Simulated assay, not measured.
Amino acid sequence: MHHLTVSLAQRSYPILIERGLLHRPELLRAQIKGRHVLIVSDQHVAPLYLDAVRAGLADLVVECCVIPAGEREKNLDRFGQLMHMLAAMKASRDVTLIALGGGVIGDLTGFAAACWMRGVRFIQIPTTLLAMVDSSVGGKTAVDLPQGKNLVGAFHQPATVLIDTDTLATLPAREVRAGLAEVVKYGAIFDAEFFAWLEQHAESLLALDPGVIAEAIARSCQHKAEVVARDETEQGDRALLNFGHTFGHAIETADGYGGLLHGEAVAVGMLLAADLSAHLGLATQAEFERLGQLLQCLQLPTRVPDGLQASELLRHMRLDKKNVSGQIRLILWRALGQAFVAPGVEETEILRCLERGGAARG
């Protein structure tokens, strides 16, 4: 088992990473403090793992909410549904919410936990690679609006994160690849050595080699835990985790949350950020190419989807929640492992970058 800790100013919580963890019900039961539990999952994940989660909670009052899968379900209507379920349960402040699924389920459940009676306990059980290495750790919770992603939300840390790597065996290959984009991000912004390790192990990662994938998850989570410990509410270093995300979120929004998966959009967004960095003279073209080649090796998209206009993407970027005083705030880099916050980049440069559309050359 990989056992990591997210250490915050007021408290800490564990991240447990192990094969077969869902078949160790005592680990989950130890995290439940009250008698009421609400499990939230989706129609893809629930048939596979809901019974295993419920099996260890037989002595409790357990309700389940199973929603359709997909980003479009991360909305205020679904949030309202969870609020009404908690009210019907007569759930008090000792209720525990369990997020069983990917990033959509984790974000939605966490936001509900943040709002019910001003904040109750919740547990993350991520079943997608993307959620394991990114959204399940750090306490960012939110729902989307038609105008943009994650515009309504709160910082609310989980009580624990339980990662059973065996769940990846049932994940569609496209979802695995999308999760690998967020793994690449940690190398790109923090750790050039890790980036090189990913280059060396690209085939094993795609094949879900148990040892290699567990190592990638653990190293990613360690980076996430360290930056969250330094900057829980994104006042400084934590903003670096948004490398590629301002571009990526604009792509998702413009596409109506029905085109690229989040990780795929982030892959394109990272390459756009690297391309912009190179054109601004901040980084080399060679490192832009290197990032593009790794993304291609991992079978991830590297171009803005056809039909999305640069001007429309720029319009969505203006509403990004990371912006300050009306200025688009991007994460760019000087080299692999050397990302930085870049406020005030001229919109004409951003527009030219969007018109180029990404894609490594050569």
Score class of each variant (00 low, 15 high):
T246I: 10
L319R: 12
L8Q: 15
A239F: 15
K140C: 02
G187L: 13
H201D: 15
V176N: 07
A192C: 06
V184S: 15
F288C: 01
T302Y: 01
S220P: 11
G179S: 03
G263V: 00
D94R: 14
T165S: 12
D191W: 02
L332W: 06
D144E: 08
Y186N: 03
L57A: 04
T160M: 05
E234P: 15
V61Q: 08
V227H: 11
R177E: 01
I213W: 02
T233L: 09
Y13K: 13
E199R: 13
D237K: 08
F195K: 07
D51C: 03
E349K: 09
L168S: 14
G179R: 08
G256C: 14
I163T: 12
L100G: 05
S136G: 08
Y186G: 00
G307S: 07
K185F: 07
Q235E: 09
Q285H: 05
A196C: 12
V40K: 12
L308I: 03
I67H: 07
C297H: 14
R290V: 04
Q31K: 14
E287M: 05
L280C: 04
V228N: 14
K322F: 04
G258E: 13
A278D: 02
C64K: 01
V45G: 02
H279P: 00
G148Q: 09
F288A: 02
D166L: 05
P301D: 08
F122P: 02
S135E: 10
R72A: 09
L272E: 03
L351E: 13
P301L: 08
C64F: 03
A88W: 10
D275H: 10
I125Q: 11
E347P: 10
A192G: 10
A335E: 00
A169T: 06
L206F: 08
V66M: 06
V183A: 01
A58N: 01
A225N: 08
C64A: 12
F288W: 08
T127M: 11
S41V: 00
M89L: 04
D306P: 04
L354T: 10
A250W: 02
G102T: 08
Q43I: 00
C64R: 02
R334W: 05
V152T: 09
H2T: 10
L86D: 05
E349W: 04
G281R: 02
I350C: 12
